[in-house]
Amino acid sequence: MNKDYLNSDIKFNKEVFKTPENYFDNVKEQIYAKTIENKDGQMQSRVALWTIVKPQLSLVASFAIIFFIALFVIDKTKEITPILGTADTSSYIYTIEEGFLKTNFIDFIDPSDSSNYREEIPQDQLAEYIKDNIDIITIALLD
């Protein structure tokens, strides 16, 4: 069976606590000074709740500010990324909206047409096309 410490070993006696010398005489004088001699009876200054929570609130506010800055930056990055990733599409859409389509001579060539169309292609346009589409042409040649 467990020992009942509270009923056996530990006995409270007032001597456990001490007070400063002449404490009771002094405290009475202090009480009189704050009551009878000072009719306003100002309360002892207490630590206000605001004083207690102020440092913690500052900390929380700092974290909140950092969080919102991070959120703002992430949002901005998200907005920028699609623009960068779809630059060609945007430009395409922009061109359509303006009523124009960026075309190339190749768009008008019908491979099934046996007419001698090559002669009608200006050399400078052909050179420009090859320069712009060298990757596609290379792949097509490999096939």
Binding site: F12, V27, I31, T35
Partner: peptide
């Protein structure tokens, strides 16, 4: 009553400084 009340408060809050503040506030 100050001494009796002091010991009542002291046994509740344990520390002298706290008991002293509470005792004074009690009488105020």
């Amino acid at each position: 009553f100050s001494e009796r009340l002091y010991w009542h408060v002291r046994k509740m809050v344990v520390y002298h400084e706290d008991a002293n503040d509470i005792l004074q506030n009690t009488f105020i």
